[in-house]
Amino acid sequence: MLDRLPRAGREADPAARQRLLRIHGRSVAWVPPLVLLLGIAVLDWNTSGEFRIISWIVLVPGIAAAICGVWGTAVFALLAVVAYFTVDTSWPHQYQTGLPDFILVVAGGVLATLACAVRVRGERRMVHMRDVAETTRRAVLRPLPPGWGGLDHAAVYLSADVEARVGGDFYDIQPGPQGTRVLLGDVQGKGLGAVETAAALLGTFRESAYHEAALSTVAERLEVRMLRHAGYCVAVGRSDGDRFATGVLVGFTEDAPDEIEVVNFGHEPPLVIGPRGVRSLPPGDGLPVGLGELGPGLPPVLRVPLAPGETLLLVTDGVTEARDAGGDFFPLFDRVAAALAADPRAAEPRRLVRLVRDGTLRHSGGRLEDDTTIFAVRRPATVTSRSAAGG
């Protein structure tokens, strides 16, 4: 999987800030407050008695509280008190700032140390929550080995929630005796309920895509799983029992190397990118997963041509509904077509995913309104006959 790009809001990441305060692996967070402390002391020593600035030394522990640890801040608070007392008492009595400013420096140091303790505790909690979110994301969107299922592939997931890093988008590749099946989908709604629903659908996909001979049966199993999950949510009194998911289910079979099977659950139709240009697969006129009872049944299984070397691009609506400052949607088809005309290598999965990712972020100014998944898969140009064991 491609790494996620930093976006607006990531500047507050404590790990990133600590990296900025390191040189050759050593922390230099102590330098700014130390320079400030020495600068104030030297300037006060060289000013006239009518204009004393030594009381400004109260800023030193405040600066340390923002970038240093608790013990570092406490040390600078103590140094500020010592420096204040040493410099101030070196002046004649009539020019000394006296006890009030001394109390100010002491109180400032104590408050700065307490504030630093609160900051460090919050950062540790944030790091812990991000670790939990990252573990959850990896459990739902498992890493895919190179060449998994006999396919070249690349994917990137961008969460609209910068802090949570997880959402309702999902994708996977499942090899099996009947060939390789691919799934991409987008659960309606946000939050942990959407993540739980995505996990339920992926679990069903991974089992049924391996065991079931017909892609239509896999689609049926997904529909039943969504209905069961919705029933469970209602039974436990949760308000998210009416969730549904759009998605695209794709089957790659070894006996038809120039075709794929596609079931579209009301999702944006995938694009095919290759030597012959860019084309869109038939639109998804089926209902989303979980709403099959409202229509004539499950979406049909379509057989569409896909030659080895042609790339199938699947995206969620975080791409197609990304808007710029003027409210215009991201022109996915046109951008991909232009890139392919300029460089035929743009059809390679990693290049294609990077192209769409960068274009989406630039178009939206880095402000994604919805979770965004970009997933590209293709048979290698040289097809080898290999049967993959399931994962």
Rank of each mutant, 00 (worst) to 15 (best):
P6G: 03
P6F: 07
P14K: 07
A16N: 01
R22M: 13
S27Y: 01
V31F: 09
D44M: 07
N46Y: 10
N46W: 09
T47Y: 10
G49D: 12
A64Y: 04
A64R: 02
G72F: 05
A74Q: 06
L79I: 02
V81T: 07
T86N: 01
W91P: 03
P92V: 14
T97L: 15
G98M: 04
V105I: 13
A112F: 04
A115M: 13
A117E: 11
V118F: 12
T136C: 13
V140R: 06
V140W: 03
G147A: 07
G149Q: 08
L151Y: 09
L151R: 12
Y157C: 02
L158I: 14
G168E: 08
I173T: 02
Q178P: 15
T180P: 03
K190M: 05
G193H: 07
T197R: 01
A199D: 09
G203L: 06
E207P: 00
H211W: 09
L215C: 04
L215G: 07
E223D: 15
V224N: 11
R225Y: 03
H229Q: 12
Y232P: 00
C233H: 06
V236Q: 12
E254I: 02
D258Q: 10
V263G: 08
P269I: 09
P269V: 08
G290D: 10
L291V: 10
L291S: 00
G292A: 15
G297D: 09
P300H: 01
R303C: 06
G309S: 11
T311K: 04
V315Y: 03
G318L: 07
G318H: 10
V319R: 00
A322M: 09
D324S: 04
D324C: 07
G326I: 05
D328S: 14
P331A: 06
D334E: 15
A337G: 00
A338R: 15
P349V: 11
R351F: 00
V353D: 10
H363L: 06
P380D: 05
S385Y: 06
R386P: 00
G390H: 13
